[in-house]
Amino acid sequence: MKLERTELSLIGVAIAIAILAQFSPNWLVFTLTLAISTALVVMGVVMLMRAGLVSFGQGLFYCLGGYAVGLGGRFLGITDALVLVGLGVVVTTVVAMILGLLMTRYREIFFAMLSLAFSMILYGILVKSHGLGSTDGFGVVDWTLLGFTPGDGQATTTALMLALVLALAIALFLNRYFKSSIGLACEAIRENEVRVEYMGISHRKVLYINYVLAAAVGSVGGSMTALAAGHVDPTMAYWTISGEFVFIAILGGTGHVAAPFIAALIFTLVRTYAVELAPNAWQMILGIVLLLIILFLPKGIWSLFTRKKGAAS
């Protein structure tokens, strides 16, 4: 299979980050890991947005991925990070396959509110579960990676490497997916469901597959956050977290597979520095940033690159 320019660029950037991480301070490596993990969940939001659906409940799958890692280590004795991430994907996929049967019947505000409701149900269950630490959550077991046990100070870099590999694999897949028959069918559904049906395409099936895939991708983000932070708690399913994912998706735009990664990194850095500079007004700073993006770049930060390309051609 011949690699496209985008794919070569993604591989190049991933290698560059992996090399730079060896010389970067721990806080930056950790921030990068969180940004990549967040970007994976945002990627799920973007997949839904491309099909015309806005989810205010992607935190559900983020949380399921995180808790699968926590519970898999705690109750099943699994320590391998890849197996834990895989467990998260399996659990999330099963849940999404059940919820998807209902969710794909709804559009617009109804889809948004229903997705929010399901994530808040999980939040409510976790808050009431004292065995799982209630609102405090619980710690994730020390993990290994394919038999390698990260020593002191190595866990953060190892988590970044794992996040990079998984994110790269997912980004490469989604780059192809967005241009494939089903990827374009999602955009077609957003544009005109009637015509899609008259072409002989089941819009429900397309949306269902897209919904389940978006959930699975989101769960990887949740699992990686849990592995990097070493802790899970119910706020992962709280609606404000899902709102952040939508925020980042709008910030980046839906035009390219790299957009969520750039947006997640900007968001994480803006938030980090906004909290540092204005501890009582950081949400306002984020709000102003979003307003400016909507006003001047309605198709997200990625439109800066496409505009440039358009101007050059």
Partner: peptide, 11 residues
Amino acid sequence: HRQFQMIRPVR
């Protein structure tokens, strides 16, 4: 009948 293909480009 290839509307569910995920990897091969539509074009």
